[in-house]
Design a protein around this nucleic acid. Structure first.
Lengths: 220, 220
DNA sequence: TGGTGAATTCATCGCTTGCTGAGTTGTATG
DNA sequence: CATACAACTCAGCAAGCGATGAATTCACCA
């Protein structure tokens, strides 16, 4: 039952035309620790963030991770399941927002914008956020994650602060502001938003958030 | 050289199992007028708007249009070129914005929001706008169209009205507000934005636009 | 020390994709 | 009436896709 494969472990005379680019492995388990699962997830986040779900092939992810395509399926089953794993947003955003909401009411809007931007600027959180945002337009699960995340974390942070009429709508509009900002800053790249400092953006958008927190003219 | 094909025009005894669903055509040019080109473009807009560029196949577009797949290539060459044609945004938006900007300064922000929403509500303009917005996250051309359109039409409408520091940024932030609104209203569907009346949205977001038109606190 | 199971590669299957060329039918032009 | 071109369908190709199963190698535990 253990007959050798069609190509036995012949040591490959290695003609000089093959520069052996991505370090071929002969097959079988590699020695040492197994961080492959995480490598695949990182590679997936990177690819999904860059090109979206549909335009990213499992083969490409595997290549980025430096492993065989079958390993991706071995660990995550299907491309879809891998994608869902890649959507897991790091917990930084809710934390950051809650922290921003803790302080004084003056400058609250500005602090929220800064907290939002800071998480996006974080290199370790960014691929997951980018994946979510980029795929939200085409993939239902990504849209759902974005929805829950936006409403959830904002409500959690500002739930005690915001009162009055139409609280749900006003929270949604704050989320709209922040999502819209990320969209034009990182995805559509609407000049000059990508090159504007967080401070200036906070100065411009802080009052907008404040306006939703305390509307000057209650809706008629 | 004109030998008949393998299946000659045999009239197909038509066994009752074939309900002949999409009205088969025998081949060759159809009599009467040719609106097929436009039908294909409409079908493309519909499909692209619904599922995005990558998830839409040429075959599906052809099926939606009720024609053979090869016709799509006959008229538009490649899927990419067809997509670019589908992105052509109807001229209504610049018009509507200019019209809104014409009136009094009081309530200007609110009128802009209403104009923006009205164009989106228009059934004939919607597929193209939806296609653009949905694909902007994954397709460079779509992002470029969205960019040019947003900045261009808003600057054209408000160029004379908006003055002071950082005009470019403030215009971009107005565009961000409107794009973000369309995103949460039509794509991500962030509750309760999709079900909110244009009037209430205008009441909530009009002041935001006004704030960008006339910042109360000039940026430090 | 032997055996079980996890990690890894390879080869491949079945399907869908965008696209093409050949052939057929209609319309228009001389 | 003949020629030419535009519209249209059919059949199929080459490439890429997601996914699978067998074979191989390693780690670990009894």
């Amino acid at each position: 039952m253990t007959l050798p494969r069609s190509t036995p472990p012949e040591p490959q005379p290695q003609p000089p035309e093959t520069p052996q680019p991505p370090q071929r492995h002969p097959g079988g388990r590699r020695p040492g620790e197994n961080r492959t699962r995480e490598q695949i997830l990182d590679a997936a986040r990177e690819c999904f963030a860059e090109r979206g779900y549909d335009a990213t092939s499992v083969r490409r992810i595997a290549e980025t991770a430096g492993v065989d395509q079958a390993l991706v399926h071995h660990f995550y089953g299907t491309k879809e399941k891998l994608f869902l794993n890649a959507l897991e947003i790091p917990l930084r955003m809710p934390e950051a927002l809650a922290e921003a909401a803790a302080g004084d009411r003056v400058g609250l809007g500005s602090r929220i914008v800064l907290a939002h931007l800071r998480v996006w600027e974080d290199a370790s959180a960014r691929p997951a956020m980018m994946t979510t945002l980029r795929s939200a337009a085409t993939h239902r699960s990504a849209a759902a994650v974005l929805r829950d995340y936006a409403k959830g974390s904002i409500r959690e942070a500002l739930g005690k602060v915001i009162t009055g009429e139409d609280v749900e709508l006003r929270i949604a509009l704050i989320a709209t502001t922040l999502i819209g900002l990320s969209l034009t800053r990182h995805l559509v790249r609407l000049d000059p938003v990508p090159d504007t400092s967080p401070q200036e953006l906070a100065a411009r958008l802080g009052p907008v958030i404040d306006l939703h927190l305390d509307p000057v003219t209650p809706a008629a």
